[in-house]
């Protein structure tokens, strides 16, 4: 059994009257792809936003890499090694690919307070990041506005994979993609695991979850109702866990 990278215990979060998370317990292991499935509004994105510092839970505990953490901003989570590819992508369309890859991680050169951007260095490293993950983008100098949905997704994943992140969180990374683009992104996700990143994947595509994930958690109306090893379950069982036809 591999060691646990993240452990979530008794997490609660309400938005006004909506109890988005209720006593959520789950965990994910180092070097694995862990999936979260569940219907629309089940609380998957909310859980993920607690992990990456966007939301703060009302109560409960998140242990990351052996330490209890409480991130007050995405910046802190990124600093700890948690990178996120959000459901709505979070790229700046008017900036170039390399500017997006290095957003708020810019390389600079100079002395003391007189720091200027190392534009050349960032471009070069961006080329390396993109080619290391076999990402198909026209050029790192192209503005993101000109990229297709799949290419944007690849850039977002590429950014998450860079900067020696321990955990890469992806919220429905293939939701808007065609068959070929989906296949490419899945290849990317596998290569992240091969490179030693833990991946937390949210997906509505059960076949994809069965193909990629090592572990799957099922959420239903704010609760994490079941956890299974993918090797020991079937798409049919997952579906019945999601709908509640099968009690955990």
């Amino acid at each position: 059994m591999t060691s646990e990278l993240v452990t979530v215990r008794g997490l609660n979060l309400s938005f006004g009257n909506v109890r988005a998370l209720r006593d959520v317990d789950m965990s994910l292991a180092e070097g694995e792809i862990t999936a979260i499935v569940g219907d629309n509004g089940a609380g998957k994105s909310t859980l993920v936003r607690c992990l990456c510092g966007v939301h703060r839970a009302d109560s409960g505990e998140i242990v990351f890499d052996g330490r209890t953490v409480s991130f007050s901003s995405p910046e802190e989570a990124r600093h700890a090694g948690i990178e996120t590819v959000h459901q709505n992508l979070a790229l700046v369309e008017d900036l170039t690919v390399w500017q997006n890859l290095f957003l708020n991680r810019e390389l600079t050169k100079g002395f003391g307070p007189l720091q200027v951007l190392d534009r050349k260095g960032m471009r070069r490293q961006a080329e390396e990041m993109v080619s290391a993950l076999a990402v198909n983008v026209p050029a790192v100098g192209a503005r993101v506005r000109r990229l297709s949905g799949g290419q944007r997704q690849a850039v977002a994943i590429c950014r998450a994979a860079g900067f020696s992140s321990r955990l890469v969180i992806m919220d429905e990374p293939t939701a808007a993609l065609g068959v070929q683009e989906t296949e490419r992104v899945e290849t990317l996700i596998r290569s992240l695991r091969e490179d030693g990143h833990a991946v937390l994947l949210i997906s509505h595509n059960f076949d994809q979850v069965m193909r990629l994930a090592d572990q799957v958690w099922v959420m239903r109306s704010g609760r994490c109702v079941a956890g299974r090893r993918t090797a020991e379950t079937s798409a049919a069982e997952i579906v019945s866990l999601i709908t509640g036809a099968l009690a955990a």
């Binding site: 700046v92 900036l95 500017q99 708020n104």
Partner: peptide, 27 residues
């Protein structure tokens, strides 16, 4: 120089281009 050759300048353009995306990267 400030706009195109410093981190601050990039963050200004990012904040204007998409405040949500900028916030998500910790800006």
């Amino acid at each position: 120089v400030l706009l195109f050759h410093t981190r601050f300048g990039t963050h200004v353009l990012a904040a204007g281009g998409s405040a949500e995306a900028a916030t998500a990267t910790g800006i």
